[in-house]
Write a protein that binds this DNA or RNA. Structure first.
Length: 621
RNA sequence: GCGGGUGUAGCUCAGUUGGUUAGAGUAUCGGCCUGUCACGCCGAGGGUCGCGGGUUCGAGUCCCGUCACUCGCGCCA
């Protein structure tokens, strides 16, 4: 007999009755009736009920054992009486009568309970993540993640992509997010940078002639966190040679639609080949966002023209100053109280906007200060143009174009949520296309790249030479699903002369380009195919499929919002010897902070991870 | 860096207008219980009300500051 098990905890059925079996697992739950004891024994696969009574030598041991201890049970499979069958359990028709027990690992008091769905504070869950991960929901999320990755891999290899690894210790480059840096021991004062994405390497793989690359690539960005953002995350990074934007779309739509259909649990998914394509400018106008949630039926309109002259002085003034007025319909709000509208305005102010105006309409009657001042005739004209009905309210976002769009976008979401208009049970994909190549940098008062500088401008050299830089579009595209940006990609600029020209428009000299991007530029001078790709975010995909509110629920060992690993105690203080080897000296401020951590001056609960560091019990060698 | 929310027993939470000894469930410990599957019953222990200061005869409750977690803005594709 195997040392630990003959079956898993999900395997035994009525067909196995009377068999002698050996099971191993965690003590999930106990029900002690004095003379008879029931134990739910759990492993990765499932739960089997173990029974022990006074005839069993296992009884006194199990009685004393705490939950989550690990045991091996030798016993006999018994059929349960009809009345005792548990229909909720795949193994519910049988139980195992324990003849003997071996305790593999004795658990002490638990910081959180595995057999309950109760929510625990996230810092406790993260500190004891190995226990948290035993719980049904998180365990299932991590398994879902595994399946999604397997499926993505299969779908990519089926389409002729090859998987390659790229370096983790790379060179820092000036554009993009803040790099995580790793000091070099052999080269004093120099640093490696962890990849924000394997961008240059995947392009160089195309230059190297591999034609179709993909990788489940770890990416690192040292920026502040959000619910859908972690400092380290994974992308389905891919790149293809000799392709147009259309080819990239046709390749990746079936992969994403396919994997979503496979794991959506019955939710509808935008079919491959039917992802709507929304130009960036249109997205900003109609949805107030470059990652619109298409489950939200509300569409923003620009009504600036109606307020060039208006009794409503505030809007007239904004319009006169070059600003825009955008509106968000609030359908069928005739029965909403004034409070509803006022609270929307309060919300907008709390969000840092100047305020959200509104017009109410009940049985054709307009209400609210904007309607009063603008006049019934003007309002009717506006409503007719927008196709609004006699019971539809209207919210107004006014200001500089960027601010008005942003407020309108936030209000569109808020209004739809308040009115329950967001369609449920679906994944709605779209492409955002035609991103501007350049934008005006208000701080530096100059033209700068609005996205990745390696994207090919639409119209290529001719566009750069003849058009206003701010009018030039890039072959740059995002995939958006339910309001989340899942992927960003581009057809790359593989021509050095266009690269130099594009950088020149953004104010960078050829020498600067050569200095910062020498590898790429050199490569493009030695025979580079036209190529493009994208990189869907794996964590966000799994988060959406698992219907979780944040990315940490689908990461086995996530960091908290301050980029700490509460379980392992990262980032940690290192020894003076390590620092000396790296030729690194701490600043006085850093010395003070690390001294405080060492002497345990700070006694708040978040130093617990560090305390655990020093607990030999907690070290796993 | 900024704004919102939260912080009361190991955990989940209640705690009235500022008023007696801060409660419940769960977990833990002890006792009882031979068919449970969220087993049940009896009992016990467990509290710096995040921390510091203030107002007050009196603060879990009000005020100021601060810390932690979290959501968002800035930042970031």
């Amino acid at each position: 007999m195997h040392a630990y098990r003959t079956h898993t905890c999900a395997q035994l059925t009525k067909d196995d009755v009377d068999q002698s079996v050996r099971l191993s697992g965690w003590v999930h739950n106990k029900r002690d009736h004095g003379g008879v004891l029931f134990v739910d024994l759990r492993d990765h696969y499932g739960i089997t009920q173990i029974v022990a009574d006074s005839d069993s030598e296992a009884l006194p041991v199990l009685e004393k054992l705490k939950l989550e201890s690990v045991v091996t049970i030798d016993g006999t499979v018994k059929a349960r009486d009809a009345a005792a069958v548990n229909a909720n359990l795949p193994t519910g028709e049988i139980e195992v009568f324990a003849r003997s027990i071996e305790v593999q690992s004795r658990a002490s008091d638990l910081p959180l309970i595995v057999n309950s769905a109760e929510d625990y504070p996230e810092d406790i869950r993260l500190k004891y993540r190995f226990v948290d991960l035993r719980r049904e929901r998180v365990h299932a999320n991590i398994m879902l993640r595994n399946q999604v990755i397997q499926s993505l891999r299969r779908r990519m290899t089926d389409q002729g992509f090859s998987e390659f690894q790229t370096p983790i210790l790379g060179a820092s480059s000036p554009e993009g997010a803040r790099d995580y840096l790793v000091p070099s021991r052999l080269h004093a004062g120099r640093f490696y940078a962890l990849p924000q994405a394997p961008q240059m390497f995947k392009q160089l793989l195309m230059v190297a002639g591999f034609d179709r690359y993909f990788q489940i690539a770890p990416c690192f960005r040292d920026e502040d966190l959000r619910a859908d953002r972690s400092p380290e995350f994974y992308q389905l990074d891919f790149e293809m040679s000799f392709v147009t934007q259309e080819d990239v779309f046709n390749t990746i739509e079936p992969v994403l639609a396919g994997v979503f259909e496979e794991f959506s649990g019955g939710k509808s998914v935008t079919p491959a080949g039917e992802f709507p394509r929304i130009p960036y400018a249109e997205a900003m106008l109609k949805y107030g966002s470059d990652k619109p949630d298409l489950r939200n039926p509300l569409i923003i309109s620009d009504v600036t023209e109606h307020f060039t002259s208006s009794g409503f002085g505030l809007f007239e003034k904004i319009v006169g100053g070059g600003g825009r007025v955008r509106v968000i319909p609030a359908p069928n709000t005739h029965e909403k109280s004034r409070k509803f509208f006022d609270e929307m305005n309060d919300w907008a102010r709390k969000e840092g906007f100047a305020g959200l105006g509104y017009v109410t309409r009940k049985q054709g009657e307009f209400g609210g200060p904007i309607a009063k001042n603008h006049g019934t005739e003007g309002m009717e004209k506006l409503y007719a143009e927008l196709g609004l009905g006699e019971n539809d309210g209207l919210f107004f976002a006014a200001g500089k174009e960027k601010d008005a769009a942003k407020l309108a976008g936030a209000a569109r979401t808020r209004v739809a949520e308040e009115l329950g208009l967001i369609e449920e049970g679906c994944f709605k994909f779209c492409w955002i296309v035609d991103f501007p190549m350049f934008e005006w940098d208000e701080d530096l008062k100059k033209v700068d790249f609005s996205h990745n500088p390696f994207s090919m401008p639409q119209g290529e050299m001719e566009a750069l030479e003849t058009q206003d830089p701010l009018d030039i579009k890039a072959w740059q595209y995002d995939i958006v699903c339910n309001g989340y940006e899942l992927s960003s990609g581009a057809i790359r600029n593989h021509k050095p002369e266009i690269m130099y020209k594009a950088f020149a428009l953004a104010g960078y000299s050829q020498e600067e380009v050569d200095a910062n991007f020498s590898g790429m530029i050199e490569a493009f001078k030695l025979g580079a195919p036209p190529h493009g790709g994208s990189a869907p975010g794996i964590d966000r995909i799994v988060m959406l499929l698992a219907d979780e509110p944040n990315i940490r629920e689908v990461i086995a060992f996530p960091m908290n919002q301050r980029a700490q690993d509460l379980m392992m105690g990262a980032p940690s203080v290192v020894s003076p010897k390590q620092l000396r080897e790296l030729n690194i000296q701490l600043s006085p401020k850093a010395r003070e902070a690390t001294e405080a951590a060492r002497s345990g001056e700070s006694t708040d609960m978040n130093t617990n991870a560090t305390v655990r560091d020093e607990d030999p019990q907690a070290q796993d060698g």
